[in-house]
């Protein structure tokens, strides 16, 4: 829902989300994470801490990974945002998704969208990472279920599969 305004100051923003142009009036205090989830219905972006630590809300923002809970929707005017839904639909993270499934690199799944967005960012810059490099890359994404081992395995497997393809 766009929500009743209740005299809150608002601005109009226009941005590209998962390849489509969206225009909305938003409260100036609305976070990007809430905007994505509540205004656009993109609930794949999860909110775990709202203070930028857990990484569950990680999205790609103008090409870089970022914490959507630390960004105001009002500042995203003119930007490009990609969420787990967009990266899924485009097929960009398919190898990672298949590897996460096959290796059971997720349990409750709440950290998974942020983890996938972060892992995709790693593989774009370091196509053949070492296990330590994978651990380092995901060290700002909390997972409470897996203990990380399976996630590292899955990202390594995806990198190998992508290397064979390319």
């Amino acid at each position: 829902m766009s929500g009743p305004s209740f005299d809150e100051p608002e601005v109009t923003i226009e941005l590209t989300v998962n390849g489509a142009t969206v225009t909305r009036r938003v409260s100036t205090r609305r976070h990007l994470s809430d905007f994505l989830r509540d205004d656009l219905g993109l609930t794949g972006t999860h909110i775990g801490c709202e203070h930028g630590v857990c990484g569950a809300c990680t999205v790609r923002y103008d090409g870089e990974i970022a914490r959507s809970c630390l960004i105001l929707a009002a500042q995203t005017d003119g930007s490009t945002v990609e969420t787990v839904e967009g990266l899924s639909d485009s097929g960009e993270i398919e190898a990672l998704q298949q590897a996460f499934l096959a290796r059971n690199a997720l349990q409750c799944g709440f950290c998974t969208p942020g983890m996938l967005v972060t892992a995709a960012d790693l593989l774009r810059s370091v196509p053949k990472p070492s296990r330590d490099e994978v651990r380092d890359a995901i060290s700002a994404n909390y997972c409470r279920c897996t203990g990380y081992h399976a996630i590292v395995d899955a990202i390594m497997a995806a990198s190998e599969k992508l290397a064979v393809k390319s």
């Binding site: 794949g44 909110i47 899924s88 996460f100 499934l101 096959a102 059971n104 799944g109 998974t112 969208p113």
Partner: peptide
């Protein structure tokens, strides 16, 4: 065997309580 439910979760299609309209 892989978990069927995980297919939804890796595509951002999970339905947690806060996702339900």
């Amino acid at each position: 065997l892989a978990r069927p439910r995980a297919k939804r979760l890796v595509t951002g299609r999970g339905r947690y309580t806060g996702d339900i309209a």
